[in-house]
């Protein structure tokens, strides 16, 4: 079992690193969206600092969503998913390993990029710890929920916009808690409550979403 998960992780990592654009594009998108806001609302440092928790979280959420659109698409188009369905391995384990590998590579890059963007928006450096922690706890939930949508829309020719429509409402709790944590630390209050909630949401989605993702994939492949 462990050997097989290892070879899955290796395969996913190879595929991601051999097409680095797909890895880098969401990061550029993240930076670009953050850069749009000062241009839209004006460069006042005070205003930007106050808005920064929400801005960073909305941008991160959209970047994660964007990176997930192609999560299963190439596997669907070249028939790999059929092989997955017809393998003796449990599909839920397969998809969980795949989504987590994707998160470790693309999600972590996002988390690492975020402090730079936060400093550009004027977020005080003592909030950076909370920022990183909230993104670390929140983005796995975003990836797993998004993977459900990606699985359901993988067979559609233009699934990208539909994916956003299906999944963004489900992202709202993470958005509220994540930006709430950052807001609290910006006001000098403790953010441990929100962080703990983010952690429990991550555990909940980690437990339930693999079944929804594999059900979605079976429906899309069986079409």
């Amino acid at each position: 079992m462990t050997g097989f998960v290892r070879s899955l992780v290796l395969r996913e990592a190879r595929l991601l690193f051999r097409r680095p654009a797909e890895l880098v594009n969401p990061l550029i998108f993240f930076a670009l969206v953050v850069a749009l806001f000062p241009l839209a609302v004006g460069p006042q440092a005070e205003l930007l600092r106050e808005l920064s928790p929400g801005l960073i979280w909305v941008a991160a959420l959209l970047a994660v969503l964007l990176s997930l659109d192609g999560l299963f698409r190439s596997d669907y188009e070249d028939g790999s998913l059929e092989q997955w369905m017809l393998s003796p391995r449990p599909l839920a384990v397969l998809v969980l390993a795949k989504v987590l590998t994707h998160w470790v590579i693309s999600g972590l890059a996002l988390v690492l990029l975020s402090p730079v963007l936060a400093l550009m928006l004027g977020l005080p450096s003592q909030c950076l710890g909370t920022l990183i922690l909230s993104l670390l706890l929140g983005t796995p939930t975003l990836s797993l929920l998004g993977a459900i949508g990606a699985a359901l829309t993988v067979g559609l020719r233009r699934g990208g916009l539909l994916l956003a429509l299906l999944i963004l409402p489900l992202y709202i709790p993470v958005l509220i808690l994540g930006s709430g944590a950052l807001q609290a630390s910006l006001q000098g209050m403790s953010s441990s409550g929100q962080l703990l909630w983010l952690g429990s949401l991550a555990v909940l989605t980690l437990t339930l979403s693999p079944f929804a993702i594999s059900a979605g994939l079976r429906i899309s492949v069986g079409e």
Binding site: L145, I148, L152, L166, L170, A212, A215, G216, I219, S220
Partner: peptide
């Protein structure tokens, strides 16, 4: 697909 989405 709608069933799965409604349950989620």
């Amino acid at each position: 697909a709608c069933s799965v989405l409604a349950l989620v």
